[in-house]
Amino acid sequence: MPDTTLDHLGAPKGGWLGALKRQWLLYHLGDPRYRFMWDPAPPQEWVSIDCETTGLDRRRDEIIAIGAVRIHGNRILTSERLELLVRPDKRRVSADSVRVHQLREQDLAAAMSIDEALPRLLHFIGSRPLVGYFLEFDVAMIDRALFPMLGMGLPQPRIEVSALYYEFKDRQRPPLERGRDVDLRFATMMRELGLPLRDAHDAVNDAIMAALAFVKLRNLR
């Protein structure tokens, strides 16, 4: 299962090793204007993110939409959401991916470049921990695009909603039945948590649903 041990809800681990790593990363940061990402995170704040892509190949496919929404305590600040369409540089939008997210090449012709989108995303996130559903893929796609700009990927702690959900379901089992598989599909998770299911494979909708699940699971802990 994905790691959720970052204070379990996103606070970065402290200690001298953490401070040493922070200094090393800041020294090697490709653009000092983004030092703010290593600042202390605002208390009780997170950012839920989601990306839509031209496909599922982390090495070759590209981001075509980014959705993000801020969370403050138990509030999801939908009025402060970020919604970006991104024009792919090299990869064509496959028919399979269009069927998933309904974004065609003509829909993206006038969209911003990834180089324009990334600064907006970084300023929106700030130093807040990241929340998401199968977040590893989204962060990998962002990091690949970000590396030429910063020489490194996103430094923020990450909270995997599907892992929190797995732990929640596993705790409900008798001790001898713990550790077994759990249905981690998005629709199943939202239904089991009694949360509304918005249109999936829309970056903002997926970010909001992940935020809803995070807030609910955080309170259930």
Rank of each mutant, 00 (worst) to 15 (best):
P2Q: 06
L6M: 01
H8T: 02
H8P: 10
P12W: 08
G18F: 00
L20I: 05
L20N: 01
R22W: 04
Q23C: 08
L25G: 04
H28L: 15
L29H: 07
L29P: 15
P32E: 14
R33G: 15
Y34T: 07
Y34P: 12
R35D: 13
M37I: 10
W38Q: 05
P40G: 02
A41K: 03
P43G: 09
E45C: 15
E45N: 09
S48N: 08
S48M: 02
D50A: 09
C51S: 06
C51F: 14
C51L: 15
C51I: 14
T54M: 03
T54C: 02
G55W: 01
L56G: 02
L56M: 15
D57E: 07
D57R: 02
D57P: 00
R60H: 15
E62S: 06
I63D: 03
A65F: 14
R70I: 14
H72W: 10
G73Q: 13
R75Q: 12
S79G: 11
S79T: 12
E80R: 10
R81V: 00
E83W: 10
L85W: 11
L85R: 12
R91S: 07
R91V: 00
S94K: 05
S94Y: 12
S94M: 10
A95R: 11
D96H: 14
D96I: 01
S97K: 07
S97L: 02
R99H: 11
H101G: 11
L103M: 14
A109T: 09
A110F: 08
A110V: 08
A111W: 08
A111V: 05
M112I: 13
M112D: 02
M112L: 14
S113M: 03
I114R: 01
P119E: 06
R120P: 00
R120D: 04
R120F: 00
L121Q: 08
L122A: 11
F124H: 15
F124C: 06
I125M: 12
R128W: 08
R128N: 05
V131P: 09
Y133K: 06
F137P: 09
M141D: 13
I142T: 10
I142E: 00
A145Y: 04
A145R: 15
P148T: 05
P148Y: 10
G151R: 01
G153V: 03
G153T: 09
G153S: 10
L154P: 14
P155E: 13
Q156T: 05
R158P: 01
I159P: 11
V161Q: 04
A163M: 00
L164I: 04
K169P: 06
D170F: 07
R173T: 00
E177K: 09
R178V: 12
G179W: 00
V182P: 06
V182F: 04
F186I: 11
A187Y: 11
A187F: 05
T188Q: 05
T188D: 06
L195Q: 05
L195V: 09
A200G: 14
A200N: 01
H201C: 13
N205I: 11
D206M: 10
A207V: 09
I208F: 14
I208K: 05
M209K: 02
V215W: 04
V215Q: 03
L217G: 13
R218C: 09
R218W: 13
N219A: 08
R221C: 12
